[in-house]
């Protein structure tokens, strides 16, 4: 792959072309906030947290889906970006019913950590408080739509890694929901293999095993990347 020169936060870098801005930043220890990105599966640019400024481009672009180009001048931590990150985080919290104190993922939640990261001390937007279903029909696992942020990591893991294609998405806008099979209870799914990869991929307490309570959740999203790496090696 051809090497090109780019500039990130006034730092000159020689990088391989074809990489995304996010990959380059992570390789060079430049922090980019993400929520829908998961190592091992394809990026979709859903969460809009990894937005960066690129000189000559008016709008902000998502670092996970934008590839580097020669002489690109990128900024990752301007006041404008920080403002947008804070807004995005607040909107994620305002959209569904995120009650950290009683959540099974309390203390081990990527969304909660994001809130701390962007110093979210309040939510300036009216909460929607939607009536969300809790799907307990699966023998071992629970899907709680109250805590889902629609990152679709579960959808991608299920299709790209497990190949089961159990998870999908229905509706649009604030009515968007994760569905199992053709919108049937998870427990009645004919495609779910009960492998549990979606639980590890989920960044919040939306997917969790019935057998545990707060303080016992142990999600390992890194196993998805390890699995894909082994697959590429033919293991």
């Amino acid at each position: 792959m051809q090497n090109i020169t780019i500039y990130i936060d006034d730092k000159k870098l020689e990088v391989e072309s074809g990489k995304t801005i996010l990959e380059v930043c992570r390789n060079n220890n430049i922090e980019i906030l993400t929520m829908c990105h998961l190592e091992g599966v394809l990026d979709v640019g859903a969460c809009r947290l990894c937005l960066v400024e690129i000189e000559g481009v008016n709008k902000l672009l998502s670092a996970c889906t934008t590839k580097v180009a020669a002489n690109m001048v990128i900024r990752t931590s301007t006041e404008r970006i920080k403002r947008y990150q804070r807004i995005t985080t607040e909107l994620l919290f305002a959209e569904r019913n995120h009650m950290c104190s009683v959540c099974v993922a309390n203390g081990k939640c990527e969304l909660q950590n994001l809130g701390y990261k962007v110093e979210m001390d309040s939510i300036r937007y009216p909460r929607l408080f939607p009536q969300c279903e809790v799907d307990t029909s699966h023998s071992w696992y629970v899907l709680d739509h109250n805590r889902c942020i629609m990152c679709t990591r579960c959808v991608r893991v299920c299709s790209e890694v497990e190949g089961a294609f159990n998870w999908s998405v229905k509706n649009r806008g604030y009515q968007v929901r994760i569905i199992s099979d053709f919108n049937t209870p998870w427990g009645e799914s004919t495609t779910c293999t009960s492998c549990g990869k979606c639980l590890h991929a989920c960044p919040t307490g939306a997917l969790w095993p019935k057998a545990i309570v707060q303080g016992q959740l142990d999600k390992k999203p890194e196993i998805i990347e390890e699995l894909m790496a082994k697959r590429k090696m033919g293991l």
């Binding site: 009683v102 279903e133 809790v134 057998a211 545990i212 707060q214």
Partner: peptide, 14 residues
């Protein structure tokens, strides 16, 4: 109501 019973030891101390 409509939550998993195993969540109650976390919710009710509140």
């Amino acid at each position: 109501q409509d939550r998993m019973y195993t969540e109650m030891p976390t919710i009710t101390p509140r």
